[in-house]
C-alpha cells in the first residue's frame, strides 16, 4: 500500500471561503467611485487653477479669519469636551445611581439629532431672549451671534466622541491597577493622576482628535447660532457654501482643500494614536 500516488487537486483559489473577488471588487469600486474620485477632483483642482491662484484665494483676511475660527474653536471645544467627557464617562462607569441608563442613552443625542434641529434649538436657547441667553445677558455675556456661539455648537456636537471613546476603555481596565497603587501607598489623587489618567491617555487623545475633526467640519448646527459675521463669526465651511453660491468654484475648492488636508492629518494622527494604544496593551 502506498499513498504516494494519491494526488489531491489543490483548489484554484488560495482562499478557503468564496466571494473574495466579488466582495473586495465591489468594495473598492464603490469606495473609489463615490468617495475617492470625487475627493481627487477636489485635491487636483488647485493644480488645474495654479497654486498661486489657490494661495491668493486662501490668503484673504476673510478666509484666514474663518479658518482660524473653525480650527481654533474646534480645538477649544475638543479640550472642553475631553474634560467633561472624561468626567461623564467616569460617572457612568464607576458610580451607581438611578436613571443611569437614561443618562447614558442621552449622550448620543448629538449623533441622532439632525444638526439643523440642534442649530435652531441652540440659537433660540442662547439668543438674548432665550432661556440661557437672557440669564447670561444680565451678566453682560453674549453667546449667540458671536464667536462664542460657534464654540457652544461645537461643544454640543462633539461631546459624544469624547465620552464614547473613553467609556469602554475605562470599564475594561478595571480597578486592579488602582488597588495595586493603593496597596503601594498611593493616595487617591496619586493613583488617579499617576495611574488612571496616563493609562487613559491614548483613549482621551483619540476622543479629542475625533471631536476636533467633527467640530472643525461642522456646519448645520453652527450657522444658526453664529450670526455669520464675515471675519468675525463666519466658519470655514460656510465660506465654502457662500463661494459656491457666488460660482467662485476656485475659491471654494481652495478652502475645501485646506479643510480636507486637515482631515487627512487628523486621520493620520488617529491611526498613530491607535497603534500607540495597541502597543501598550
Amino acid at each position: 500500500m502506498s499513498a504516494i500516488g494519491l494526488k489531491i487537486p489543490l483548489p484554484k483559489s488560495r482562499h478557503v471561503l468564496p466571494g473574495f473577488g466579488l466582495s473586495l471588487g465591489f468594495t473598492i469600486f464603490y469606495l473609489t467611485s463615490l468617495v475617492l474620485i470625487p475627493l481627487l477632483a477636489l485635491v487636483l483642482r488647485p493644480f488645474e487653477l495654479g497654486l498661486d491662484g489657490m494661495w491668493n484665494a486662501i490668503s484673504t483676511p476673510r478666509v484666514m479669519a474663518s479658518l482660524r475660527l473653525s480650527f481654533g474653536m474646534a480645538l477649544a471645544a475638543a479640550v472642553i469636551d475631553s474634560v467633561f467627557g472624561f468626567i461623564i464617562a467616569w460617572v457612568l462607569v464607576r458610580y451607581r445611581f438611578p436613571g443611569k441608563a437614561l443618562l447614558d442613552a442621552v449622550i448620543d443625542l448629538p449623533f441622532a439629532l439632525p444638526t439643523a434641529v440642534a442649530g435652531i434649538a441652540l440659537s433660540t436657547l442662547y439668543a438674548p431672549t432665550g432661556w440661557i441667553g437672557s440669564i447670561l445677558m444680565e451678566h453682560g455675556i453674549k453667546i449667540a451671534y458671536t464667536p462664542w456661539g460657534v464654540l457652544v455648537a461645537m461643544i454640543f456636537i462633539s461631546l459624544p466622541f469624547t465620552v464614547r471613546t473613553v467609556q469602554p476603555v475605562l470599564s475594561e481596565i478595571g480597578r486592579d491597577m488602582e488597588e495595586a497603587a493603593a496597596t503601594l501607598g498611593a493616595t487617591r489623587l496619586q493613583s488617579i493622576g499617576r495611574v488612571v489618567l496616563p493609562m487613559m491617555l491614548p483613549a482621551i487623545l483619540t476622543g479629542a482628535a475625533m471631536a476636533f475633526a467633527r467640530a472643525a467640519g461642522e456646519y448645520g448646527s453652527i450657522i444658526f447660532i453664529a450670526g455669520n459675521i464675515p471675519a468675525v463669526s463666519e466658519i470655514a465651511p460656510l465660506l465654502i457654501v457662500i463661494k459656491l453660491e457666488q460660482y467662485d468654484y476656485a475659491g471654494a475648492a481652495a478652502v475645501g482643500v485646506v479643510m480636507l488636508a486637515a482631515s487627512f492629518i487628523m486621520l493620520l494622527a488617529l491611526n498613530g494614536l491607535q497603534s500607540w494604544a495597541a502597543k501598550r496593551r
Binding site: 473598492i28 469606495l31 477636489l42 467640519g217 465654502i240 468654484y249 475648492a253 475645501g256 479643510m259
Partner: peptide
C-alpha cells in the same frame, strides 16, 4: 482600506457636497 472607508467621517459635510459639485457641476 479600513482607513479609507473611515475617511468620510473625518471630512466636513460641506466638503463632501463640494467634491460632487466639482465633479458634476458645469465647470466640473
Amino acid at each position: 482600506l479600513v482607513t479609507l472607508i473611515d475617511l468620510p467621517f473625518s471630512v466636513s459635510p460641506v466638503v463632501a457636497g463640494l467634491v460632487y459639485v466639482l465633479v458634476f457641476g458645469m465647470q466640473g
